[in-house]
């Protein structure tokens, strides 16, 4: 059965690109959210196998959304996909429970390998 993915990113272009990459590699995209707050709500409704999480977003950033999702489900699989690759940010994401960190622009092969390791 295909792994079910929730995409959280404020950029419509990124959501479309991620969806295309994931679907052509056998993942099922079950939902999308354009900010962290909506991402937490969608997680609660959909209970996906994996979440791809942007960091810089309006309303609620990716780190706060990561914490919100972990409060609902401590076993949630969240991979951060961000344009920012600063060491302190990677460390913060990992401390809060992210299982992977991908820096944009996305390398499709790296994305698929990272997600396949998790599910």
């Amino acid at each position: 059965m295909a792994a079910r993915v929730l995409i959280v990113d404020d950029a419509a272009f990124m959501r479309a690109s991620l969806k295309m990459m994931l679907e052509r590699n056998g993942f099922e995209v079950v939902g999308e959210a354009d900010n962290g707050e909506a991402g937490v709500k969608k997680y609660e409704q959909l209970r996906p196998d994996i979440v791809t999480m942007d960091i810089t977003m309006p309303k609620m950033d990716g780190i706060k959304a990561l914490q919100g999702i972990k409060a609902i489900d401590k076993n949630a699989n969240i991979v951060v996909v961000s344009a920012l690759g600063k060491e302190d940010l990677v460390r913060e994401a990992i401390i809060h429970g992210a299982k992977g960190f991908i820096v944009k622009p996305i390398n499709e092969e790296h994305l698929v390998k990272t997600l396949n390791k998790i599910v």
């Binding site: 419509a12 479309a16 810089t56 961000s82 344009a83 920012l84 690759g85 820096v103 944009k104």
Partner: peptide, 24 residues
Amino acid sequence: DEVTKSAIAELTNMMVGNAVTILS
């Protein structure tokens, strides 16, 4: 159109994000 604008916005986000990583 809106998709092109979103792509350009994301490109800028990536360019600035990469520069911020280099500066860090």
